[in-house]
Design a protein around this nucleic acid. Structure first.
Length: 270
DNA sequence: CCCTCGCCCTGCTGGC
DNA sequence: TGCCAGCAGGGCGAGG
């Protein structure tokens, strides 16, 4: 899926056309992404008014005047298409607002999800219950990360992908943040020095904030909901740049870690 | 609890 | 040109 910046960009795009609007109709074309849609999704959301949009980690939140919040995850290839000119075979859920807008949840790989969660206890919903802090939040600090990594032997790269440690990072931004902080991705999490964490936390916040400001990264089938492209991909320093030169003069390498690719520069990441 | 692995699904790319 | 292996932004459950 789109990672945190792409979900944030998506949510902001949806807010422009959904906030305060009443949902006139929903159409379900294929109700089984990662898990089945709620059986009463159409009934529960027809006629509901959207009171606001939000985000928790990589999940998008559509708050309504009903007792439940629509929670979506974009998986690896999901996006919302706003007022699409044509239908697409991967438009699994289509919303129509009273004001005439059409929003299609499109997800070719179908790793995404749509759930309805009781609003007052949203934080107790199982995927949210054990989540770590938002990386852009004030409670994500070098000290808090130090505590979360204490005693952990797994590679820092893998621990930063663990949503219980910090919630919202994915492969791209972990690679980019570790490079910015000059930390080797294989270093055991518990051995990352306090001084390095003082670099890492600002690196994470910085790379995410810069990407959000650029409208997210454009990757394969990802684009902003209105079709605009995000521009952060041009700012990647290591991700997908195997064989290219690092700014330090070293060469960027790729290797498999936890079944996924890591990109790094052995010259400047120690 | 912690760690690693493999799978879910579809589409695109690159190499032969 | 055609085919096929490999790879892709995530999350979860199983097993050690």
């Amino acid at each position: 899926m789109p990672e945190l910046p792409e979900v944030e960009t998506t949510v902001r795009g949806l807010a422009r056309v959904l906030e305060g609007q009443r949902i006139a109709a929903l159409r379900v074309n294929r109700p089984d992404l990662r898990r089945p849609f709620p059986a009463d999704l159409v009934q529960a959301m027809t006629g509901a008014t959207v009171t606001g949009l939000g985000r928790r980690a990589k999940y998008g939140l559509v708050h309504t005047d009903r007792a439940r919040t629509l929670v979506f995850h974009l998986g690896m290839s999901g996006r919302w298409r706003i007022d699409p000119e044509n239908a697409d075979r991967h438009d699994h859920l289509v919303l129509h607002t009273v004001s005439g807008h059409v929003l299609a949840l499109n997800d070719p790989r179908r790793f995404g999800s749509v759930d309805l969660v009781d609003s007052p206890t949203l934080g107790l919903w199982p995927p949210f219950a054990a989540m770590g802090p938002e990386p852009l939040g004030d409670d994500f600090t070098p000290a808090s990360l130090h505590r979360a990594l204490a005693g952990r032997s797994a590679a820092i790269k893998l621990l930063l992908l663990d949503q219980r440690i910090v919630a919202g990072l994915g492969n791209i931004y972990v690679c980019e943040a570790l490079h910015r902080a000059a930390i080797r991705p294989t270093r055991p999490g518990g051995t990352v020095s306090r001084k390095a964490l003082e670099r890492l936390v600002p690196a994470i916040k910085g790379v995410l904030a810069e990407s959000i400001a650029a409208g997210g990264s454009t990757i394969r089938d990802y684009a902003q909901p209105d079709g605009e492209l995000g521009y952060f991909a041009r700012d990647w320093r290591v991700y997908g740049r195997e064989g290219e030169s690092c700014a330090c003069g070293g060469t960027i390498e790729r290797f498999a870690q936890g079944g996924r690719s890591s990109w790094w520069c052995r010259r400047c990441q120690k």
